[in-house]
């Protein structure tokens, strides 16, 4: 049998942290999917063909880095990586993770790596280094596996759960210029040594959030998104958060948090909530800070990275 010359996979947008789970929680959202096609190439090394303003050098692109790592694992000669970006870049919707996850699954298929889910997460994580500066698995794990994930490190382990049935999400993507290396800059604001009371508050909320996911209780999930560690120092760079949160909750959202490193914010709402009204409320909240935004209504998705 001749080996396939190319493989294509897609992976979903994701939201990380969900407030209390800094670097721990991730959830796949069905709003957008990045598609990556990896092909065997006669020329040595990795060549990246990207659209949508993503860096095209193999080493500065998440999908390219994943392909490099996979190529080393398989001992292949050269690969061509074609990225079709649909996840908005630099907005806190896991854009780099979606490309990395799709690339990992495509490479796994093309090179017959036969990686297990944890291996795929680890491979996709090598791509995150390009955009975040260091490896954080919250977005990539959700993009690879779908659903809601809890990332444990040392050693890496990912616990996957199904979010409550009927849960809706609404992401407000502000139309603002994002500085380069945004994630690294945003991370720099978070205190290295949080106060014990704040850590206690976050542990209690994170635990309650997981209980809410397990019980299918979106109200509990939403109320447990409160974050005492990363959010307070980041409020200055997301000044519309409070106004948007107040209005969204009034309109039926269970909770609102910064999506990943921002500047997008994400609201979760229970089955039956008027997601259009919540989106409108968030739009008004941002408008109070004279910021326009794009509202993305979506749902958590169980479909992680998969062949397209």
């Amino acid at each position: 049998m001749r080996r396939a010359r190319s493989a294509t996979a897609s992976a979903p947008s994701t939201t990380a942290n969900l407030g209390s789970g800094f670097d721990v929680f991730g959830m796949a959202l069905d709003a957008f999917r990045d598609t990556v096609t990896v092909s065997m190439s006669a020329s040595r090394g990795v060549r990246v063909v990207a659209d949508g303003g993503v860096p095209a050098g193999a080493r500065s692109n998440t999908a390219g880095l994943v392909a490099l790592a996979a190529m080393r694992m398989a001992g292949a000669r050269g690969l061509e990586v074609r990225v079709t970006k649909r996840v908005p870049v630099g907005m806190g919707m896991g854009s780099s993770a979606a490309s990395a996850a799709a690339a990992a699954v495509a490479c796994d298929r093309l090179l017959s790596l036969r990686l297990r889910p944890a291996g795929l997460v680890r491979l996709a994580g090598t791509g995150e280094r390009a955009s975040a500066g260091a490896v954080h698995y919250d977005n990539v794990a959700a993009a690879v596996l779908g659903g809601f994930v809890i990332v444990r490190t040392g050693p890496l382990d990912v616990v996957r759960m199904a979010p409550p049935r009927g849960m809706r999400c609404c992401v407000a993507v502000p139309e603002v210029a994002v500085p380069p290396k945004k994630t690294a800059a945003s991370r720099g604001l978070v205190p290295r040594r949080p106060r014990l009371e704040d850590a206690t508050a976050n542990v209690s909320n994170a635990a309650a959030l997981v209980a809410g996911m397990a019980r299918g209780d979106t109200a509990l999930v939403g109320s447990a998104m409160a974050d005492a560690i990363a959010e307070p120092p980041r409020r200055a760079s997301v000044p519309w958060l409070e106004a948007a949160r107040r209005r969204a909750v009034r309109a039926g959202a269970a909770g609102v948090a910064i999506s990943g490193a921002g500047p997008s914010i994400v609201a979760v709402a229970p089955a039956g909530a008027d997601i259009g009204a919540i989106g409108e409320a968030m739009r008004r909240g941002l408008a109070a800070s004279r910021v326009r935004c794009r509202i993305v209504e979506c749902r958590p998705t169980a479909r992680g990275a998969a062949r397209a």
Binding site: A219, G252, A271, G272, D274
Partner: peptide
């Protein structure tokens, strides 16, 4: 202050509609 979104519910008074309304009334007028 923004108003809660309005909703109309068909309400028979049976278990299903009572529970549905109790759930929806948490975030609707």
């Amino acid at each position: 202050m923004a108003r809660r979104p309005r909703a109309v519910a068909v309400f028979s008074g049976g278990l299903d509609s009572v529970c549905m309304c109790a759930h929806l009334s948490g975030f609707h007028e």
